[in-house]
């Protein structure tokens, strides 16, 4: 474990907690893409299948349990408890356009052609693009609540910090996973446009408004 990865995991944790706080305090899921949350849930389910078979450390297990349960809880809150506030008309990104290419790519490009490895690879590819429905929804509504933009900033930062972690592990531990690194770079690049808006607007105290 290194500082980049620890801070990255804490950013990821903060993002998920921020999202749950926003939903619970505002009693609303307005502005949130249920599809992105479904995709994140799928990412955790397909990646943490080894939760019970492969023990890494107490930290690793606790975080996996938290990520799994919180993502499933978020989907539940969006599609059942606060369904009335879910803005389905603006959450129209076609998930199959992400699921099918990620599944095909995971079958073709992986480290080992075994079910667990292909599912892990699928989860890595899917995580890289899972935020697209949410970013697409913001581009359609033209704005995002401030706490939602904090959520996105924390979520985007987590994988950016993981890239630093991979650089560190490459130079100091001679560990390197090209699939995770390439997907992580794609994932972080997708946030760049949002990062620009966040830093120039939200940090100036303005609401996140996309140029019409």
């Amino acid at each position: 474990m290194n500082a980049f990865r620890l801070v990255g995991d804490l950013c990821h944790l903060a993002a998920i907690v921020l999202l749950l706080l926003k939903i619970w305090k505002s009693r609303s899921v307005a502005g949130l893409s249920g599809k992105s949350q479904i995709l994140f849930g799928l990412v955790f389910v397909t990646r943490y299948l080894d939760l019970v078979t492969n023990f890494v450390s107490p930290y690793n297990t606790i975080m996996k349990v938290f990520f799994l349960s919180s993502s499933i809880a978020t989907v539940y809150l969006i599609y059942t408890k606060f369904k009335a506030t879910y803005d389905g008309n603006h959450d129209t990104f076609r998930m199959e356009f992400l699921l099918i290419p990620c599944a095909l790519l995971a079958i073709v490009v992986n480290h080992e052609f075994s079910p667990m490895e292909i599912l892990w690879t699928f989860s890595i590819y899917l995580e890289a693009v899972a935020i697209l429905p949410q970013l697409f929804m913001i581009s359609k509504t033209g704005e995002a609540e401030t706490i939602t933009s904090h959520y996105l900033f924390a979520l985007g930062s987590y994988r950016g910090l993981y890239i630093m972690n991979w650089l560190y592990r490459y130079y100091y531990e001679n560990n390197f996973d090209v699939i995770a690194v390439v997907a992580g770079i794609v994932q972080t690049v997708l946030y760049c446009d949002f990062f620009y808006l966040y830093i120039t607007k939200v940090l100036q105290g303005k609401k996140l408004q996309l140029p019409a």
Binding site: R5, S57, N60, W120, N174, D177, A180
Partner: peptide, 10 residues
């Protein structure tokens, strides 16, 4: 391959 060693990540 050495990539296995990053499987301790979340």
């Amino acid at each position: 391959s050495d990539c296995k060693k990053t499987k301790d990540e979340l």
